[in-house]
């Protein structure tokens, strides 16, 4: 009897993609492991093998879609010559095109309120995003495009204002459009990076 080649590792990305979809549609509370399994084309034990709890599934799904986001980001930003344009694209990519993603963040915030482990996960993901913004700022400072402000401080400010507007976009506030958000964020960046 020859051992069957294991394909379990191939299922992990499929499970995480399915988890991100199901959780952003229904929320952690109303997500059943069997729903995720069904969408990923596997069984509930197949999901539980990788992710013993729903919170873990949320964290890993966020991490996974984050990884994908950063993998795409590099390619996205390569098309632009200036740091200012790159920053503009980052702002566009965050709240405006990330509706499903915003909901996952909100799930994480709510659960992090009562779970220090999840709060730590959120901090890590947040730091990664701020570092990505700060890298672009430093690039612009090196090329003489931007002034000498502290790149990490400006990144913190931009990260916060983007989240604030992402919330209003996700809530469907008619007074807030992706376009006005972009203008707000870039005006703020410009005022700090003169």
């Amino acid at each position: 009897m020859s051992p069957r080649p294991s394909t379990a590792h191939l299922r992990r990305p499929a499970i995480l993609t399915a988890a991100a979809e199901v959780i952003s549609e229904r929320g952690v509370q109303n997500t059943r492991i069997s729903d995720v399994a069904e969408r990923a084309g596997t069984s509930a034990p197949g999901v539980l093998y990788w992710f013993p709890t729903k919170d873990q599934l949320l964290v890993e799904a966020l991490q996974f879609s984050d990884d994908r986001f950063y993998a795409n980001l590099t390619g996205e930003l390569e098309q632009f010559a200036t740091a200012a344009e790159k920053l503009g694209r980052m702002v566009e990519l965050w709240p405006a095109e990330g509706d499903g993603e915003t909901v996952l963040w909100m799930e994480l915030w709510v659960r992090a309120l009562r779970d220090p482990q999840l709060a730590a996960t959120r901090e890590g993901l947040d730091r990664r995003w701020r570092d990505a913004i700060a890298d672009i700022i430093r690039e612009g400072q090196a090329s003489g495009e931007f002034g000498p402000a502290d790149a990490d401080d400006v990144a913190l400010l931009l990260g916060a204002v983007m989240d604030g507007f992402a919330i209003q976009l996700a809530l469907g506030d008619p007074a807030v459009t992706a376009d006005t958000v972009k203008r707000h964020c870039l005006a703020l960046a410009e005022s700090r990076l003169r």
């Binding site: 915030w109 309120l113 916060a160 204002v161 983007m162 989240d163 604030g164 507007f165 919330i167 707000h184």
Partner: peptide, 19 residues
Amino acid sequence: DRTLALMDGFGVRALLGDP
């Protein structure tokens, strides 16, 4: 608008105990 967005963005981090 901008003040409220900043308030939400910074406030949620402070609320969650971000060091």
